[in-house]
Design a protein around this nucleic acid. Structure first.
Length: 495
RNA sequence: GUCCCCUUCGUCUAGAGGCCUAGGACUCCAGGUUUUCAUCCUGGCAACAGGGGUUCGACUCCCCUAGGGGACGCCA
């Protein structure tokens, strides 16, 4: 029985890259009559949120990638949320320590930072130097008794070559000297990804791991753990990474990466999933428009091309246009539009914002238009009337964006508090701070109250519009970003 | 810096040694249909990174170089 999984970390927006890996995992399983499961990798306590998990699940469902087992529906191999499996990991870590495959490490972060700096400076691969690997049992016991904070690291052979087999790339050889003595259990008792993924994939009987190319370098660690435990290794399939138009790894700075953004923009899920399938894979017939069911029916892993594809929104738009025109009759399109935004619930969100400004019904459309738009058409001139000088305008937009990226609840009142705080620490009037945002978000000189509008627009659309505005104003270079970032951090400390 | 992966039009891709005068799609340009726009139709621009091999024959196989990307966290 083929079993695949997608294992997102609930630490942010539902990323299209997650959808991409989920799609290929789904297709592989279904094409072999197997099962596809969803596991939540929330071992990073500080960054994982319930909110994020919910949005990720909803987004994958929106794409039509249904799982057979998962945290929401359960299954025979649960729980499917790693934070609920702690005793399992701790027992396995103990097993490795007892067998001498892992050891306690008491090194401080300062020492580790210093060590890595020196290694990189002298041209070596940065990795743990093994200081604590040689500690005697009595020393370890003494340290533990004293309550010194510690982690558990895996042992790695000092010499030799590790060969990992990738279904798409064949054998990949990595020298053991390149592999770090990875931390398996953090000081807080939680496992790291590397330990949890191996234990869970085995216990959940995953047969094929489909994941991004970024994981190739840590595959030897995983393979080693499988060997230590005496388990057989699932087949590895490393997919190419999605990229920005400038060829770097797809990132929200340069491209909308949240699945929710595409939903809010009014893309059809069929088109989005079709487009993801078209990146790196093709139907033998060459037909570019295909439903998920056709992809499953024709799925052949050897048809995956390994060059990392650029995520091209233009082509996605074209594809969506085809889906809309060719598969929706007028009746179905009407249903879709209602489902998307033209519904009573949405109207009830919008009406409070515009009611006082409306005299006749026909005033509604122009007033509310910006709440249903994609990216408003703005130019440098749009910002010309502001009191703030251009440089400050740009700074306000960038700082606001950073501030808004921290917001998880996305309520009007929270947004207001955030931006008020920003205005305070920047020492500018709130109305001057809001000016640039007003234009970025509405594209108009007048519009309903900003915070309420932001709430209606939602986090993805709000951030996308601010990013677009920053681009319109010439963008922020890497160098500028660094400078602004320093200034931004400085602000926080003054107050 | 060290290691790993990748490399066909600007972009997504077809191509499993002769079928390649390298095909399709997006974008762009030109023309047609359309009261406008869009759709639709027709046509056009545009690529095998470079150099060595192997072979009767390389886009396809091997090596080197270059370029791009990724990894090097008590993040995943």
């Amino acid at each position: 029985m083929v079993r695949t999984r997608v294992a997102p970390s609930p630490t942010g927006d539902p990323h299209v890259g997650t959808g991409y890996m989920a799609l290929f995992s789904y297709c592989y399983a279904k094409a072999h009559g197997g099962e596809f499961l969803l596991r939540i990798e929330d071992t990073d306590v500080a960054r994982s949120t319930q909110q994020s998990e919910e949005v990720i699940l909803a987004s994958l469902k929106w794409l039509g990638l249904d799982w057979d087992e998962g945290p929401d529906i359960g299954g025979p191999k649960g729980p499917y949320r790693q934070s609920e499996r702690l005793p399992i990991y701790q027992a396995h870590v103990q097993q490795l320590v007892d067998a001498g495959h892992a050891f306690h490490c008491f090194c401080t972060r300062e020492r580790l930072d210093e060590m890595r700096k020196q290694q990189i400076a002298s041209g070596e691969t940065a990795r743990y130097d093994g200081a604590c690997a040689g500690l005697s049992q009595s020393e370890v016991d003494a340290n533990l008794a004293k309550g010194l904070p510690s982690v558990v690291r895996m042992k790695v052979p000092e010499t030799g070559i590790c060969v990992i087999q990738d279904r798409l790339r064949g054998d990949i050889e990595i020298d053991y000297s390149q592999i770090d003595m990875q931390v398996l259990q953090k000081a807080d008792g939680f496992p790291t990804y590397h330990l949890a993924v191996v234990v869970d994939d085995h216990l959940m009987e995953i047969t094929h791991i489909i994941r991004g190319e970024e994981w190739i370098n840590s595959a030897p660690k995983h393979q080693l753990l499988y060997e230590y435990f005496g388990w057989s290794m699932p087949e590895l399939i490393h997919m190419p990474l999605l990229r920005n138009p400038d060829k770097s790894k797809l990132s929200k700075r340069k491209n909308p990466t949240s699945i929710r953004y595409y939903k809010d923009m009014g893309f059809m899920p069929e088109a989005v999933v079709n487009y993801l399938g078209m990146l790196g894979w093709s139907l033998p017939s060459g037909e570019e428009k295909f439903p998920l069911s056709d992809m499953v029916a024709n799925f052949d892993i050897s048809r995956i091309s390994m060059g990392a594809p650029v995520f091209d929104v233009e082509k996605l738009k074209w594809l969506n246009g085809r889906w809309l025109r060719e598969t929706l009759d007028d009746d179905a399109l009407a249903d879709r539009l209602v489902e998307w935004a033209l519904n009573r619930d949405k109207l009830l969100e919008i009406i409070p914002l515009i009611k006082e400004r409306v005299e006749v019904f026909s005033d509604v459309a122009p007033l509310a238009a910006f709440l249903l738009e994609g990216l408003p058409e703005i130019s440098v001139e749009s910002f010309a009337k502001l009191k703030t000088p251009p440089e400050t305008t740009l700074k306000i937009l960038q700082f606001s964006l950073w501030q808004l990226e921290q917001v998880t609840a996305w309520q009007s009142s929270d947004l207001q508090a955030r931006l008020k705080h920003l205005a305070d620490i920047m020492d500018v009037k709130i109305r001057d701070l809001l000016g640039p945002l007003f234009i970025a978000l509405s594209g108009r000189p007048v519009a309903p109250p900003l915070f309420d509008s932001m709430q209606v627009l939602g986090p993805d659309m709000t951030r996308a519009r601010i990013r677009a505005a920053i681009e319109v104003l010439g963008g922020v270079s890497k160098k500028q970003t660094k400078k602004l970032d320093a200034e931004y951090r400085g602000l926080g400390h003054k107050k």
